[in-house]
Simulated assay, not measured.
Amino acid sequence: MKKHRNNRVVVGGISALLLAMLCACSQPGTQLDATIPQIADAQSVGSSACLDCHEELGQAFEHNIHNLLADFEYLANSMDNQGCESCHGPASQHIDEGDTEKILSFGSLNAAQASAICQNCHTEGETMEWNHSTHAAYGIGCTDCHTVHDDGANKAMLSKPEDELCYSCHQDVRAKMHMPNHHPVKEGKMGCSDCHNPHGSQTRPMLRTDERKNELCLTCHMDQSGPFAFEHAPVMEDCTICHNPHGTVADNLIKQSEPFLCLQCHELHFHTNFRPNTDALAEYAQYASDSDPAKAAIGNSAQAILNKITGSGIDDKHAMQMAMMTRCSQCHPSVHGSDLPSLYTPGGGSRLTR
């Protein structure tokens, strides 16, 4: 017995070590310094002075939303630095000396510093959670996804089409989106940002909801919202218990094909491929000649099932094999909820042989 206890201690220690290693590998990167550098003694000179050297950028920037801001749209602390200088800082020393270190160049700033400049203005709405987002924690900055000097043709100023931009990091999602069943992202009918807020949210993984994950799914799949008299517990808890929203091989985005998905929670029970209790059926079949119409209907149903079994050749040896080829939703089609118990199909014929 002592040897077994020691083995458990060793196994427990190895498990704890592996868990610690996994947690260490999954931690976000080192927090970057987000302090915006200051150009000492520099003065504002206006955007027109910048165009003397950066004419090409100025032409592209002419229709950019940042260049079209009215005076009242600037924050109070940015009133002295508008146009180019609202992001790059006062440019007098840079212009006088031609020193690239005397201007805020986004190429020389780290991701947190560059994002902090954007956060001077973008502090509300979808961007307000950026500092606490997963992207920021892993050292991703605004300019990794956005092209600030865009000519204005792209409303969000993304450096690539949205799905390609997300896929450049999320390669596992790209693979799932090419599976037989997937949300219509690659078909152009929806985008990643329809479900996710890339700038951060209070829910993981950056979903566009502050409520349960199900609330996001039900914005499109309203027919599954209920309320139902008989609710399927996993549906009420989390849609992703059964579904993978990015893509699956199985139909309807379910993680495994039926009946294997259902069997993870439900034990195998009677259905059309199992050999029923023929003695019980024979007992019900005696009602076929009863004067009571209700009993006679039950008797006729039982006799019909009994006749089918007799001529089908189904035996106990092959019952399990045949069961694995049957979808649970053939009898339980309302898997998200129903006003009928067990979410089964109305009619009651199969209930006789349970």
Rank of each mutant, 00 (worst) to 15 (best):
L218Y: 13
M236V: 12
A280F: 10
F230L: 06
G226V: 03
L281M: 07
V235Q: 14
P259R: 06
E258D: 09
Y287P: 01
L268T: 12
Q264N: 13
H266G: 03
R208F: 01
M236N: 08
K295T: 03
L261C: 02
H246E: 09
N307Y: 05
E215C: 08
L263A: 11
L218T: 07
N252H: 14
A282H: 09
E237Y: 09
N244M: 07
L218V: 09
M236L: 13
S291Q: 13
N307P: 03
L281T: 07
V249L: 11
I298T: 13
L268S: 13
R208K: 14
A302K: 06
T278H: 09
D290C: 04
Q264V: 02
H269K: 13
L216R: 07
S291K: 14
F274N: 08
L261G: 05
A296C: 03
A282P: 01
I298P: 05
C265S: 12
P245M: 06
S291Y: 06
P245A: 03
R275N: 08
A304Y: 09
A280Y: 10
T278S: 10
A233Y: 11
F230C: 07
K295I: 00
D251F: 05
E231Y: 11
T310R: 10
G311N: 12
Q224K: 14
P259C: 06
C239Q: 01
